[in-house]
């Protein structure tokens, strides 16, 4: 096990460590190992009143940011965007904003599909495997939080 290149080891290909060199018999059986690298979503519009919600920032910080934009920032409307898992949080922020405004604020939600690109990079640069990309779709939501126009 310590040296997968030992000829005698070829009888136990399954047990060979995954990340060994290409000469390892296990690698010949397996397809080339890739690292999956997720690219960032493509360029998005960013106005002052666009808020992109993520799952890394503290929820309250993001909520406070939205509140600041609406109350202190003098914006009549803001757009809260969420992608994938952050959809839930984006909805939450929007609903919380609405609740804390005593129902004055209105919500207009739109959904969309965002194409995401994953890069597949071979683990080992000497490997024969080439660089691959794979696209997949993820759902997104865009919630306009706004004060309705006085009529």
């Amino acid at each position: 096990m310590s040296d997968p290149r030992t000829p005698g080891m070829s009888s136990v290909p399954q047990a060979a460590p995954v990340h060994t060199d290409s000469t390892s018999p296990a690698v010949e059986m397996d397809p080339v190992e890739y690292t999956l690298r997720k690219r960032l979503p493509r360029k998005l519009p960013k106005r002052r009143n666009d808020v992109y919600v993520n799952m890394k920032t503290d929820f309250r910080a993001q909520l406070a940011r939205c509140q600041k934009l609406l109350e202190g920032g003098g914006h009549r409307e803001i757009c809260v965007h969420g992608l994938g898992l952050a959809i839930n949080r984006a909805i939450n922020i929007a609903l919380q904003l609405q609740a804390s405004s005593q129902g004055v604020l209105q919500l207009a939600a739109n959904t969309s599909t965002v194409e995401l690109v994953d890069d597949l990079e071979p683990e080992d640069p000497d490997e024969a495997g080439e660089h691959l990309t794979r696209t997949r779709n993820n759902s997104a939501i865009h919630i306009k939080v706004f004060y309705p126009d006085p009529q």
């Binding site: 609903l95 959904t111 599909t113």
Partner: peptide, 28 residues
């Protein structure tokens, strides 16, 4: 946690059926 799946379903249907009008509502 089913919200994401709900949107995905709607998006798939929009893509497959085509020319669908959509109205999205959020609530607690």
């Amino acid at each position: 946690r089913a919200v994401t799946k709900t949107i995905t379903c709607a998006e798939i249907m929009k893509r497959k059926v085509g020319s669908l009008h959509q109205l999205t509502k959020l609530q607690y």
